[in-house]
Design a protein around this nucleic acid. Sequence first.
RNA 1: GCUCCGGUAGCUCAGCUGGAUAGAGCAACGGAUUUCUAAUCCGUAGGUCACAGGUUCGAGUCCUGUCCGGAGUACCA
Length: 541
Amino acid sequence: MNHYLLEVLSERLNSLGWPTETLRLSRPNDSINGDASTNIALTLARTLKKSPITIADELLSGINFDKSIVSKYEIANPGFINFFQAQSNLHEQLVNVLVLGSDFGKNNIGLGKTAQVEFVSANPTGPLTVGHGRQTILGDTISNILEWSHYDVTREYYFNNAGRQMRMLGESLKVRYLNLKGDKLSLPDGGYEGDYIIEIAKRLLSEKPTLDNDSDIEIFKSYAEENIFNLIKKTLQRIHVQHDVFYNEKSLYDEGKIDAVIDELRLKELVYEKDGAHWFKTTELGFDQDRVLIKSTGEPTYRLPDIAYHREKVRRGFDLIIDIFGADHMDTYPDVLAALNALGTETSAISVVIHQFVTLLKNGEMVKMSTRKAEFVTLDELIDEVGIDVVRYFYIMRSANSHLNFDLDLAKRQTEENPVFYLQYAHARVSSIFRRAKQRDLLPNENIDYALLDEPSTIALLNQILFFPDVVKKCLSTLEVHHLPNYLYDLAGSLHKFYSDHKVLSNDIALTHARLQLLKAAQLTLKNGLAILGVTAPESM
RNA sequence: GCUCCGGUAGCUCAGCUGGAUAGAGCAACGGAUUUCUAAUCCGUAGGUCACAGGUUCGAGUCCUGUCCGGAGUACCA
């Protein structure tokens, strides 16, 4: 109906010579105000110098609405125009949903386009923590939304296995290894204290028992890296997150991409030397302080490879490039974008999604998290406690802009009053009805009398179902995926309400068939939505 | 100091590009089950949308300022 309304309304506005820019339709909060509403008369009042009511009158008087689409319209104070959708039109759309089936909710916005989503990107220094979890699920869900919009999506994990951190990791493993052999060495300053290092040391000892203090640190480093990466990948696999590309920062060095960036920035006179370090003249680009690109030790900071990496992403030709960062990386990307712009690289394809932190509450107290000090709860532990579905749902049910309070104790004990179960239960209930229907040989009927679907909670459910594609589009355009779980929760609510209002399988065969069609649509919408979230839609619970 | 995010019911949070009487869940209280799964449904109660100005027909939503909480402001990533 909305398409139709926008079309006839703008046509009428044009013929009156009135501006159409502010023409919008919205869904009234209260269905008493119709199924669609426009404030066009209010917005035109000023420029036309007429009362909104008069404008609305004039506007509507020249339109003959198609009765099979718009059953009724009215002008409401102070000047809204409300439209009521014809039920037959609603029922046509229901049929359409059923035809689309598992494609219902998809759109073609990304058809023929490519997208790259970079997320997780944790360096292999320790297992994924509860903190990484948010980004992991956020990135994967955004990727799913993109795929639902027919983008060709590359999920990418960017990592760095060189530098100070990794050396420290190697040192830490070496110490733990030698400890196992009886050596009383203690961890270096800033070493990794986690027990997982000891586990890896044990494994290394059994595989290569002859290493000693003089052994090449490289052996320890690469062994630690390999083991930790396997750990990370196993965790990702558990929650069904699969990256297409693991991009090693090192390749940027090997292929001369890093040198190219610094050379070109130097040519632009945006780099200077001070105290033995190479500085990026960001003040010249509008920032309040300059940044180090290459430390006095000769090692680049993360900033330089980040610039090279992003430049490379743009070169790879993606139509859409999405970076998922935690709030702690807030400061890094403006510099990177500024550098790219200075280098003449187009940055309009790049979007950055910043998510706020996850605060973990344990026994009502905040747990401080640090990988190095091993003060953290791993993502694996969380999955063990609450399960994959709950983990995936919890991480994205809230806006990425808000801090996420993850109360561990609550999450553990809450398994029965969890929103995700509310959703799944709705799906299972419907499945149960279909099992019963099958037992009674209520097979799909070709002549459905959709006009029988006219009770309030039925119409409400149908409207809710039809809203799904818009929600997907909203998630896409805003990259805020929490709208989806919120929507699905409401959908489940409409479904539960319908369930308690109406018995589906009854002696009224015609009505039963009509309701089964509606349920089929509701079920597939839930299923499609849950699929985007990566949450299972159980047949029974 | 500066940059970014948040401040909405006792708690955790929604609130679509400004719209009509600000909504859920949890917690509290009351009700519904000879019925397709009660992990459900219905009802009651709970609000100065941090505060103060501004913009306009209209502001939780936009602008300015203040206060509170968080993140950053590294030759860590």
